[in-house]
Simulated scan of single mutants.
Amino acid sequence: MITPDSPSARRWPGLRDAAALAAALALCLSASGCSSLLGEGTAAGAGIAGASVAGALTDNAAVATGIGLGVQAGARAALQYSQRKIHAAAQDRIAMAAGPLAVDAVADWKTDHAVPLEPAEHGRVTVSREIGGKSLPCKEIVFSVDDDAKSSAFYIAAICRDGQTWKWASAEPATERWGSLQ
């Protein structure tokens, strides 16, 4: 890892800025209030860090621009991958809560994230009907995403049993996503 006092940073002074930015991003990841900063600032911060590193490594503007754009695209892809993993974990929590329920029964669900890229969420889930068959048991569910203002948003999805585990079975819609869980 490159630190401000490492030999690489002394050889290339521009790397100090990149190391400082990386440290700030790591600190931000540990604070739950930074999710909007990460969503909007990841690409910009990575572009700045990439340009700083590129400027320290080369005097060629085209190469420096390429390095900066590559770092920016990589950071954006990494953030999107992390968000997809968080959404899949939330879907698994909802499916886990709904799987053992009978039709019309209600259960609570919630998420807690090890890395707070998004706020923890919670709500209720109920099974509206059983679908599929004996060899493919599935359920249609209705769930809420509740906020602290005592209001809820409601959604419909499908879950299916995969061995002993219930898994999310709804395809991602082609239209606007429903909140932060899809």
Rank of each mutant, 00 (worst) to 15 (best):
A46Y: 04
A97N: 07
E172N: 14
N60S: 11
S32D: 13
R10I: 00
G47A: 06
P100Q: 03
L181P: 04
S128W: 11
V63F: 11
S35G: 07
A64G: 06
S6L: 10
G163H: 14
S170G: 10
L38R: 09
K110D: 15
A54F: 07
D146Q: 03
S35A: 10
I86Q: 00
C160A: 09
V127Q: 02
P7L: 10
D112T: 11
A24V: 02
G132A: 05
E118M: 10
L27I: 00
S52Q: 15
N60L: 07
A149H: 09
V115K: 01
A51I: 01
A54Y: 09
N60H: 04
A158V: 12
L57F: 15
A77P: 04
H122E: 08
L57P: 11
L181K: 11
A49L: 05
R76Y: 13
R124D: 12
S135C: 06
D162Q: 03
D104T: 14
T111P: 00
C28R: 12
A105P: 11
V106M: 10
K85M: 08
S82R: 15
R129C: 03
R16I: 14
S52W: 03
A171N: 12
K139W: 05
L37A: 08
V53I: 15
K85L: 07
A44C: 08
T111F: 00
E140G: 02
V63P: 05
S135D: 12
T165D: 14
A23H: 02
A43F: 14
A153E: 08
D17A: 15
G41R: 02
F154M: 07
T175E: 15
S170M: 15
V115F: 09
V103Q: 13
T58F: 09
A54E: 00
R161D: 08
D148T: 13
I94S: 06
D162K: 01
S152E: 10
A44K: 03
G99I: 03
F143N: 00
V106G: 06
D108K: 09
A97W: 08
L69Q: 07
T3D: 00
K167R: 15
T65P: 01
